[in-house]
Design a binder for these strands. Structure first.
Length: 423
RNA sequence: GGAGAGAUGGCAGAGUGGUCGAUUGCGGCGGUCUUGAAAACCGUUGAGGUGUAACAGCCUCCGGGGGUUCGAAUCCCUCUCUCUCCGCCA
């Protein structure tokens, strides 16, 4: 969420920059400015009235103390009208505040200047693409066939137990998953991230804090009985650890990592993109989160991209880095890099990580602030990225490493799997 | 699930209708002393809104919401959460 002061002072800039998202903000911004004026006027009126009421109340107290009851009763009469007015002014102010909040929440984050305008993922900039001798071949089996052939994943069982999008991993398939989680966590810890184990369900405040609510309401599984939500990513609980917190400068950079299962309804997804492990309702992921000083956040974004890149390199997967265009950018992000790995049998790039700088957008929502050297309070910047999301990594790993007699495991993983091939 | 207790500033913990945004202790920050540190002593130390060139001033906030009252952290209603005991249980 953008701060009202910021909107007031940068209205034209906001409208201009949001064009990169194909988002016409002019109407909303105009309304916000309008409501803001009214809100402040109402606030002033109410405050003045309350000041009068307070003064009278104090006076009555004094009079009672000194035994002048009759005079006190007289002053009381003056308060009745003020009271009535206060109630009305209060209501008016509440109304404007709500209006303003409702409008502010509708504004997505402002893309960074470097973000190119565009509509879909086709307009994303390719920043880097690794050279690869891996070529698409009709002889290569897609991972869903390999998974069945080597008994790694049972999609049918998942359908039976739960439904589509909830696969059952078996034997070496299950072990491979566990190995990847441990591998990713160990690497993150080496990189200075503190490991957390977090709840897989969150309350409404948390879902709002990171921007899932109200924007992506239908994308989360909801438990109405307790009004809790299954997390779509550990970003939600991890970042919300710092909701309503004022950090000292010395706490920076805050670096957290967490492994969690993630749940996504993926309403509206269908077709070949959901085949096999490509898009699931439940999947595992290791996430990295950083909370940093605003002036460092873009350096940190680069650092995080480099780190995630190092992981796909260790796994010997061909990859590319894209920078999302305005139209493909998430609601809360100012800049996002995607890391995609090449899936040789499907002949396509699979997104395995999305690394974003949210600048102050999440921090404003969840009141995550820091105190600078002068004691002034500012919103911090938040960033996060997958490091990494498992199922698509598994898909690429087994497709790219298949050979006539089995599947090879990349060397970096062998200490974790305990086997170097699947036969 | 049953019974009870509670929710106050970074933490601990007072405050049961009238200058209480809140006594006090710890912690933090600044200072005196010291070669330096510790100890001791002195001072300072919540957030938001409005307002200002900047101060000041004014307003709001004692878990959330509502009510009583001229006036509420203090009384009433309600919701949420936490703790203790019992039950169940990985």
């Amino acid at each position: 969420m953008l701060q009202i002061n910021f909107v007031r002072e940068n209205n034209q800039k906001i409208i201009d920059r949001l064009k990169a998202r194909n988002f016409d903000a002019s109407g909303i911004v105009e309304k916000i400015i309008d409501v803001d004026v009214k809100r402040r006027e109402a606030q002033k009126n109410l405050d003045n009235n309350l000041a009068k009421s307070n003064a009278l109340a104090r006076q009555i107290g004094e009079l009672f103390k000194s035994g002048k009851k009759d005079e006190a009763e007289k002053v009381k009469e003056q308060t009745t009208q003020l009271k009535q007015e206060n109630k009305e002014l209060q209501k008016e102010l509440e109304k404007y505040k709500e209006e303003q909040e409702t409008l502010l929440i509708q504004l997505p984050n402002i893309p960074h200047e470097a973000v190119k305008p565009g509509n879909t993922e086709d307009d994303n900039e390719i920043i880097f693409q690794s050279e690869t001798d891996l070529k698409y071949s009709k002889d290569l089996l897609p991972h869903w066939d390999l998974a069945t052939q080597y008994d790694l994943v049972d999609f049918e069982l998942g359908n039976k137990v739960t439904g589509s999008g909830f696969p059952v991993y078996k034997g070496k398939g299950a072990k491979l998953q566990r190995a990847l989680v441990s591998f990713f966590l160990d690497k993150a810890i080496e990189e200075g991230y503190a490991e957390y184990q977090i709840p897989l369900v969150v309350n409404e405040d948390s879902a709002f804090g990171t921007g899932q609510l109200p924007d992506k309401d239908g994308q989360m599984y909801h438990i109405p009985l307790d009004n809790l939500f299954l997390i779509p990513t550990s970003e939600v609980p991890v970042t919300n650890i710092y909701r309503d917190v004022i950090l000292p400068e010395s706490a920076f950079p805050v670096k957290c990592t967490a492994y969690s299962t993630c749940f996504r309804r993926e309403a509206g997804s269908y077709g070949k993109d959901v085949r096999g492990l490509n898009r699931l309702h439940q999947f595992d992921k290791v996430e990295i989160v950083q909370i940093v000083k605003p002036e460092n956040s873009y350096d940190v974004l680069d650092e995080m991209v480099n780190y995630v890149t190092s992981l796909v390199k260790l796994l010997e997967l061909p990859y590319r880095i894209t920078r999302l265009c305005g139209g493909d950018l998430g609601f809360a992000a100012a800049m996002t890099y995607d890391i995609e790995v090449f899936s040789s049998a499907q002949n396509k790039w699979l997104e395995v990580s999305s690394i974003s700088n949210f600048e102050a957008f999440q921090a404003n929502r969840m009141k995550l602030r820091y105190r600078d050297g002068q004691g002034k309070i500012h919103p911090a910047h938040t960033l996060n990225g997958s490091a990494l999301a498992l199922p698509r990594i598994v898909a690429a790993l087994i497709e790219n490493n298949q050979h006539e007699n089995g599947i090879n495991i990349p060397g970096a993983l062998v200490p974790y799997t305990g086997f170097d091939s699947i036969l």
